[in-house]
C-alpha cells in the first residue's frame, strides 16, 4: 500500500511541476545558481588550500647564525637541530659555501663580489621539513629553532605564509557566509513557489481534507515537488560544474600546474551526491515551510 501511494503522490508531484513550469523553473534555476556558486567556491578554496600546503612544503627554514660561530659549534648545533626536529632535513652551509652559492646565483654579476675585502655572509643552517606541513606547523618549528644558541635570526617566508593563511581563513569565512545566504535565498524562492502552488490548488486541498485526507497526505505531493525542484537544480549545477571542469578548468590548470605541481580539483561522486542531497533538502525544507503555514490556517 505504501508503495503505490508513494508512486501516486510522486507522479502527482511531477505532473504538478510540469503543469506550472515557469515558477518551478525559477526555483530550479535559483537552486542551481546557489549550488553552482557554492560548489565553485568550495572547489576554489580546496585548490587554494592545496597550493598553500605545497608552498608550505617547499618553504625551508633558514637559521642565520652569529658570524662569530666556529665550524665546530655550528656542527654541534646542526646535530641538535636534527635531534629536536626528527621530521626535518637540515644542512650546514658555512660562510665560504654561502659565498660560492651567491656567486652562482648572481651569474654575470658575480664580479661585483670580487671587490669585497672579506666574506659578509653569515653561516646558516637550512632546515627543510619533510612531508607537506601546514603553515602553522612550519611556524611552530621556526619558533622552536629560534631559541637555540648562536641562532641570530630565523627566516621561513613568514610574511608570505602568514598572509596566505589569513587570506585562506577569511575566504573560508566569507565563502561559508555567502553560501548560507545564497542557500537561504533559494529556500525562500522555493517556499514562495510552493506557496503559489498550494494557493492555486486550495480547492483541491479543501476537498481532499473533506473526504478524509490526512495533513501528511495533503502535504506529501508539495514536499515531493519541492524536493524535485531541489534535485533538478542540483542536477543543473552539477552539469554546469562538469562542463566547467571539461572546458574551462584545463586552461586554468595549465596556468597553475607548472607553478605549483598541484593538480586541479576534481568533482567526485561523493561531491555530486552531497550536492544532490543539499539541493533536495533545500527544496524539501522550503516547501515544508510553505505547506506547514497553509495547513495550520
Amino acid at each position: 500500500m505504501i508503495a503505490h501511494v508513494a508512486w501516486r503522490l510522486s507522479r502527482r508531484a511531477a505532473v504538478n511541476l510540469w503543469r506550472a513550469p515557469l515558477p518551478s523553473l525559477v526555483s530550479v534555476l535559483t537552486i542551481a545558481l546557489a549550488l553552482f556558486l557554492g560548489m565553485s567556491f568550495a572547489i576554489g578554496l580546496a585548490f587554494a588550500r592545496s597550493l598553500l600546503v605545497s608552498w608550505g612544503a617547499q618553504a625551508s627554514i633558514t637559521l642565520y647564525l652569529d658570524p662569530a660561530t666556529t665550524d665546530d659549534q655550528a656542527r654541534a648545533l646542526l646535530a641538535r637541530v636534527l635531534e629536536s626536529e626528527p621530521d626535518a632535513d637540515a644542512v650546514y652551509v658555512d660562510r665560504a659555501q654561502a659565498l660560492r652559492r651567491l656567486r652562482v646565483d648572481l651569474g654575470d654579476l658575480a664580479g661585483a663580489l670580487d671587490g669585497l675585502a672579506q666574506n659578509p655572509l653569515p653561516p646558516t643552517i637550512e632546515v627543510t621539513p619533510r612531508g607537506s606541513p601546514e603553515p602553522a606547523v612550519v611556524r611552530v618549528i621556526a619558533a622552536q629553532l629560534q631559541r637555540l644558541p648562536q641562532v641570530a635570526q630565523v627566516d621561513y617566508g613568514r610574511e608570505w605564509l602568514d598572509k596566505l593563511t589569513a587570506l585562506g581563513r577569511s575566504l573560508r569565512g566569507f565563502g561559508l557566509g555567502s553560501l548560507i545566504a545564497v542557500l537561504g535565498a533559494a529556500l525562500l524562492v522555493v517556499a514562495n513557489t510552493i506557496r503559489l502552488a498550494v494557493y492555486a490548488r486550495r480547492d483541491e486541498i479543501e476537498i481532499m481534507k473533506l473526504v478524509g485526507a490526512t495533513d501528511g497526505y495533503v502535504r506529501m505531493p508539495f514536499l515531493l515537488e519541492g524536493a524535485l525542484q531541489g534535485l533538478l537544480g542540483a542536477g543543473l549545477a552539477l552539469g554546469s560544474l562538469a562542463a566547467a571542469d571539461r572546458w574551462f578548468l584545463p586552461r586554468v590548470q595549465q596556468a597553475f600546474v607548472f607553478a605549483s605541481g598541484v593538480a586541479a580539483p576534481q568533482i567526485l561522486l561523493s561531491h555530486a551526491l552531497l550536492l544532490l542531497g543539499i539541493g533536495a533538502l533545500v527544496g524539501l525544507f522550503g516547501s515544508w515551510l510553505a505547506v506547514a503555514r497553509f495547513l495550520r490556517t
Partner: peptide
Amino acid sequence: VVFQDFKLLENRTVVENVGYALEVLGASD
C-alpha cells in the same frame, strides 16, 4: 457527505472525482 455546492474538482474527470474518497484511504488504482 453530499455538499450543497457539490465540491467537485473541475480539472479531474468524473471517475477521478468519485475515486478521490478512496484514494486518500490508500486504495490501489
